[in-house]
Design a protein around this nucleic acid. Structure first.
Lengths: 154, 154
DNA sequence: TGCAAGTGGTTTCAAATGTAACTATAAAGG
DNA sequence: CCTTTATAGTTACATTTGAAACCACTTGCA
């Protein structure tokens, strides 16, 4: 057991943060708990890392992206994407060929095997999201979206 | 440039996730952006990692905690806490001595130097949080707290 | 007592990650 | 053209992180 700070040393106000009410901290805990929960699902099933899954998710939505574009859309850095792609291509989940107009650029797509995994994992992820949203009522869901939009404004 | 998926292969609905509207993903991006922003401040100033700062923050609020208790309160695992403490003690920012009733247990406190850092970093962190909250109006702030409470319910 | 099981904490080793340097190609400007 | 500068992507190296094994001490209980 521990005592909470009582008397502050004479004349000094330390004003410690209360982490449990500190917004950045709360977001961090919440976000990690959620993402890790989802990741556990597909890691167990397919030995797929979170970065790999994110790459697959954007390739499912946008075919023929380059590695750079994948990085932009996933907010991951290009090295992380390069490594994720190396594994995905190796595992036969993503196909990569060279763009004919620019030999530096790759053209990426999910393979059949990639789509098959996608079609299992995407619904699982959605179900997890739904389980979260089920904790909220209709009003709260609307406010949440609005608040996230505002917080993400630059 | 890339085209979005148009015709789905005959008879198959792939239903890709839209990451930019997917709650876990949005939270993850937002949270990382915010935490990293704050961390940049104190990393530059004091060569302090995020885990180290979190340990200091709980020790500021609760004196004499054990490493285990710090781990519980920060939602970090005990290895991470052990390492953070090793550095903090080494740097003279935290004092550690043995509990006299239990020789396994440590008793941790910020030193003068630790408090000095705390008293600079805590206001910076608070200012960052405030900058975030300033993007919201009074209603939105109230809803946000309420929503976070609900989402964190187990 | 004394021994099995549990707890606090550190160490070790492997995997993940970040940074910087590097290769290859493309674009832009003289 | 030819040189400089920029971009796509990978590689190498150092650092961080996580999982499991480990050590020391305590607790529960025969």
């Amino acid at each position: 057991m521990s005592r909470q700070r009582k008397a502050t040393p004479p004349g000094i106000q330390h004003a410690p943060l209360e982490l449990e009410h500190f917004l950045p901290y709360r977001l961090s805990i919440l976000s990690n708990t959620i993402s890790q929960g989802i990741a556990d699902d597909y890691q167990r099933l397919y030995d797929l890392s979170m970065t790999e899954w994110r790459v697959m998710a954007v390739l499912a939505r946008f075919e023929g992206l380059s590695a750079r574009e994948v990085a932009d859309r996933t907010a991951m850095d290009k090295v992380a994407v390069s490594r994720a792609l190396a594994r995905l291509v190796e595992a036969g989940r993503v196909s990569r060929h060279m763009a004919d107009n620019d030999k530096r650029r790759s053209v990426l797509d999910l393979t059949e095997a990639g789509w098959a995994i996608h079609d299992v994992v995407a619904p699982m992820a959605r179900a997890r999201e739904q389980a979260l949203l089920d904790k909220l009522d209709e009003d709260e869901r609307r406010w949440l979206v609005r608040i996230l939009d505002k917080l993400q404004e630059r």
